[in-house]
Nucleic acid binder design. Structure first.
Lengths: 235, 235
DNA sequence: ACAGGCGAAACTTTATACAATCTTCGCTCA
DNA sequence: TGAGCGAAGATTGTATAAAGTTTCGCCTGT
């Protein structure tokens, strides 16, 4: 049954079958295809990716460590359902880290990187124009990741990857109204500031961008869990 | 019934055997008993903790995700050996995050927490007086973790736990001279500022504390890897 | 004597089998 | 009719065995 699909010559990242699973699930979460609370059965995923449960389990544990999957003992893995308190923490952390990341990105700005950013902006615009919500939400997160890669700080990048993935779940759970064009203009403004090497402006725009995203959320205080149920059913 | 959704999903240091292994290895790294580059064989660890390789492997993968263990494909797990560039990133991140953490800790300061901090300070002093280097280095890291717990921000806490563990390896690798009494006075100063609820002073002292720790390191620029080897062998 | 290559041993990686646990469905009884 | 109980089914947790890779000693040829 196990087709020998893996000779040995592959890219260093994609060659790892665990990484393929992890990135597949992550992408699904980033594109809002996987909803919070969805059960991620080991056999199910294993069948999809043609892998044994050992590898699936490894991938799920990594995702749990990143905070986008909850593993409940003897019950299985589920897409995380961040609480409003989690959401506030995530965005506070982003407001702290990302202005600094932009700072470093400006230091590391090269023509190649600026071109990369520009191409990303056009990609975002195109996805929005054709109304591709999935691509839009994915690219919106990827923008921030791109700036973090540009900064060259691997630790900030690692932290931010985690924060972005959680943000995606948070936005899906708590956005007030559908806001497809939430931040494309903001992104363009940030890129403009980077191009001008204006750190103060870049920091300020990044900060207001994040503040605005959070302001679009409805983060009620869930003192009791049944409030959520009432909210879902009552309308 | 909905309140019962996560009965034990968040019990990091429970009777979980994987957690026991992970925390045992982490403690060994924090106390400088495990040196960078040490091989962590699966059989070896499994024998020590009376666990099968499956569980050991899970623990090692978690540690790898935290950046204090490197897993090399088909070769095994090794205690990480942070580069000087890593070290600079770690301390920059700490200088960014920890002042904010102290800020929140002041907001959350209660008599119970202040007492806890005070007890920690005396513990640190006692360990130093009796010349217990292992306990000293462990408690020094635990102080920062304690402040982060006090802040109540789980995300900052998670990030900082990772940064502290890596810092321990960095200090072991790059400290100029043995500095056992590196920061006990600083810690006392920070606690004093917290007690006075003086955020500006607390932030400033935390920042200078971290800056001083990094200043005690010798972070040469290793453009090539053989430089390190030459340094070790050539005296 | 030394460089190069073969081969066995040790280890990691992956898959599979078994055990423990939870969930679900049906049955009984008040 | 509804609650309580119990067994069957399904799913996860753990251990063990098979497969693949690297490493290191040893042997041969020059």
């Amino acid at each position: 049954m196990a087709a020998k699909t893996r000779p040995k010559s592959d890219t260093p990242d994609a060659s790892d079958r665990v990484s393929r699973i992890r990135e597949g699930v992550t992408a699904a979460i980033l594109e809002h295809r996987l909803l919070p609370g969805t059960k991620l059965g080991e056999d199910e995923i294993g069948e999809i990716y043609g892998a044994s449960r050992t590898l699936v389990r490894t991938a799920l544990q990594q995702l749990a460590h990143e905070g986008i999957v909850n593993i409940e003992k003897n019950r299985g893995a589920f897409v995380a359902r961040p609480t409003p308190a989690d959401a506030r923490e995530v965005f506070e952390a982003r407001r702290l880290i990302e202005p600094t990341i932009v700072d470093h990105a400006i230091d590391a700005a090269s023509p190649a990187w600026l071109d990369r950013l520009q191409r990303h902006l056009t990609e975002e615009r195109e996805a929005e124009l054709r109304g591709d919500a999935r691509a839009s939400v994915r690219l919106s997160g990827e923008f921030h990741r791109l700036v973090a890669e540009m900064s060259g700080h691997s630790i900030y990048l690692g932290f931010l990857k985690e924060l972005i993935a959680r943000s995606s779940l948070i936005i899906l759970l708590y956005r007030r109204h559908d806001t497809p064009a939430c931040g494309t203009d903001h992104h363009a403004g940030i890129v403009g500031a980077i191009r001008k090497r204006d750190k103060a402006a870049a920091r300020a725009q990044m900060l207001s961008h994040l503040t605005e995203i959070e302001a679009e959320l409805f983060l009620k205080d869930p003192s009791a869990d049944e409030l959520r149920l009432a909210d879902v059913l009552g309308v």
